[in-house]
Design a protein around this nucleic acid. Sequence first.
DNA 1: GCGACAG
DNA 2: ATCTTGTCGC
Length: 229
Amino acid sequence: MQPVFSHPWEISFKEAAELQRKLRQRLVYEEYTGQINLIAGADISYARKTNTNYAGALVFSYPGLELVEEVGVARECHFPYVPGFLSFREGPPLLEVLSRLRHEPDILVFDGQGIAHPRRLGIAAHLGVILDKPAIGCAKTRLCGKYDPPPDEVGAWSPLTHQGETVGAVLRTKKGTKPVFISTGHRITLNQALQVVSACCRGYRLPEVVRRAHLFVNRLRIEKDPILK
DNA sequence: GCGACAG
DNA sequence: ATCTTGTCGC
């Protein structure tokens, strides 16, 4: 899986915001009509006091969720974390691991927002457009927008709205825990995203693809980071 | 000016 | 995100 186009990553915040507003126009909010045989989850782990980050991408069969492939890589990061610009920090390493995948997933799930972003280009939307691949954003907390807490029942959800439009959904994936924030990234509808994420839950708050990716990069960091070994 | 603020 | 032990609650 390779990008269909590229752009510079080491730019100013002003230029980054302009780029986000421009790329936002390439987003496709249509229903995904293809088959879903493989689904991937990607995430990153950071080594404290260092600029080293560990990115990972895992591919699973769908809907069985059997692990098919996993790729991890350690890289140096220079772009700081600033709310609203996460993709400029995590985008490059994630594209790196995704490009090294031998199996091409049909859908991508990222640990962060899709269009539930101030300029509608959260990391899932940004990378989805660059790869022109269906993508879903699954964040643990809110970046923008307002919502009413969904009932405490698995599957319950409520719309996440921002500036008068529905940008995502707040989904209860596990009873008695905080809900997750689901939003469209690219080439998929919110209802489909909710269906797919729900189908990936196995009793934990986070859907398996994201949870496993999270565990993988964390494990990768602990075994490769000398300061903790 | 003040508060909010993915990972 | 990361650093951390025990502890409260379903």
